[in-house]
Design a binder for these strands. Structure first.
Lengths: 141, 141
DNA sequence: TATACTGTGTATATCGTTATATACAGTATA
DNA sequence: TATACTGTATATAACGATATACACAGTATA
């Protein structure tokens, strides 16, 4: 009943968003199996040193995305989402992220080739020195 | 002394940001030549139906980016930026935009190949049916 | 130097986001 | 059914981003 989520107070990114992003990653990456019972909102609130309402918001947001299923009095579970649906959901989120980047690029008169080149650079820089995980929160240690 | 900037009240994007983005595009795209005298903050405020302070903020932000040069009592001009510097500036902005997209992609376990594929899709969709301008604000009309 | 234009600085209103406390309601089970 | 756990709803505090009014200061020029 423990979940590997790390909060970084120094980041400008809001609490609930950090938690959502990481939890979403765990679910979509299938590191949390379908049907898994998550910690109760109070339990996780204590563990992450934040309020119950913040955790509640996270669970609620992810439930409305179809990733969680909640039953009052019982708990919150990882939803059983069809692989195709889950894949579509994941894909859609990435597409939205890239649409913003492309919008910026076009406003600045980038060519498609230039954007592709920049993408490759950025990916290379992000994945260099890492083992393949999206985790850049440990500078020292 | 007229500048082709369009405000869309319906967009969630804040006023100052819409103006900044478009003006930045005009300068970096060299549609506004170096040395061009921009409309006074009061003049542009009237034209765009917003407050003087909002225009002031835009001019100030772009000045701190090195794109404008301002002289109290005289006016605001397009700065003479070295081509290399301007190019670097432009490039840097696009890189930042793509870093966010890549971060999202990695969190969702995208492979580099998948991200490249998505980028091509998004670009294709954005440039289809357009003449090459970043303008999707006219649905009717 | 008077005037009519430039940009500037201070102080403030408004709104949405983030985060919270606290009281309420459903569920499991001894 | 008592109790000890689940999630839920309402009201609100705190903050930052956005946008503003208005009084102030520099510049050009008749």
């Amino acid at each position: 009943m423990w979940i590997p989520i790390q909060i970084d107070e120094n980041r400008p990114e809001p609490l609930y968003h950090q938690i959502e992003t990481q939890l979403r990653g765990l679910i979509l990456g299938e590191e949390l199996a379908e049907g898994t019972l998550l910690p109760s909102i109070r339990e996780l609130a204590v563990a992450l040193k934040c309020s119950v309402i913040t955790i509640r918001r996270v669970y609620q947001d992810l439930e409305s995305e179809g990733l969680l299923r909640t039953r009052q009095g019982t708990g919150t579970f990882v939803a059983g989402v069809d692989a195709v649906v889950r894949e579509g959901h994941r894909h859609e989120r990435v597409v939205e992220a890239f649409e913003k980047a492309v919008e910026t690029g076009l406003q600045l008169h980038c060519t498609p080739q230039e954007m592709e080149s920049i993408l490759r650079d950025v990916i290379a820089r992000r994945t260099a020195g890492r083992k393949g995980e999206a985790d850049d929160r440990a500078s020292e240690e």
